[in-house]
Nucleic acid binder design. Structure first.
Ligand SMILES: [Zn+2]
Ligand SMILES: [Zn+2]
Ligand SMILES: [Zn+2]
Ligand SMILES: [Zn+2]
Lengths: 134, 134
DNA sequence: ATAACAAACGTTATATTATAACAAATTAAG
DNA sequence: CTTAATTTGTTATAATATAACGTTTGTTAT
């Protein structure tokens, strides 16, 4: 019974747990600093774990910040359809779960003859808290 | 007659002209290499020009590639609403001009209480040429 | 014209983000 | 067990980006 590899390796588990505990996105070298007490010593060990975690959809990369956040949305398990809201003031980041949006974008076609298999969308603005403080 | 500063500085002109001539997005250090014969010697000179050009909407940054591309779309002069299609095979990048899409996204609201002022969207897939060659 | 201010420049050094290369250890499958 | 594939550990280095500082140039108002 060829059971699909769902088990994460030790380093992958360590890195994932740090990211899942975090309130916001973490940068690779901040993750490294956080896991050094657990035996991970080199950047590459972190980047390799990140690569795998992204591949299986457990985390996403916030491209505009070079930072990594846990997926809270079982809909994008394969990291093919991601959308985030990012506060320009407090840098708060949230994954957007919106079926209409994801359907709209997943089905989007233009006149280029290109069929899109994946997208990443980042919205920027002021979060509720920061809007009040202005 | 307080005429709005629309004149680009020397370095900004040099960097912009390189980016406009290019077929695809250029990386900062590749731009640097290209402009060294024109007197620009240091990365910071390039990055400062890039920053300004982005600010005034002449170019955009392709976040997933850390590369810069000229704006072909007068609709996003202020770089507040950008969308690109990116070929996973040949890395061809094209700015998407689609009024429906940009209206949909500019007006998008979710239940977060956040009003978005800016977005960046990157689609990935195979371009027409690469699809044929598969 | 000239003083005052803002924007752009030049330069050196350094910070931050990410990957190459290689060998050893671990895990999954036949 | 054997073989193949994945993961690991390690060192070194590549690629991307900014800090800090002083100078020069361009704009604006008197
Ligand atoms: Zn997700
Ligand atoms: Zn905020
Ligand atoms: Zn544009
Ligand atoms: Zn292509």
């Amino acid at each position: 019974m060829t059971q699909k590899q769902e088990q994460l390796s030790k380093n992958q588990q360590i890195v994932l747990s740090i990211i899942e505990k975090a309130k916001g996105p973490l940068k690779a070298y901040s993750i490294l600093y956080n896991v050094q007490k657990r035996g991970i010593k080199a950047p590459l060990q972190v980047y390799r774990a990140l690569e795998k975690l992204i591949e299986i959809g457990k985390i996403h990369k916030i491209e505009s910040k070079n930072a990594f956040i846990a997926c809270k949305n079982s809909d994008c398990e394969i990291s093919k359809a991601t959308a985030f809201s990012i506060c320009n003031n407090c840098e708060h980041v949230k994954e957007i779960k919106n079926t209409k949006l994801s359907k709209y974008l997943s089905n989007f076609e233009d006149n280029s003859g290109m069929k899109y298999k994946k997208y990443n969308l980042e919205f920027f603005g002021l979060c509720k808290d920061c809007k009040l403080k202005q």
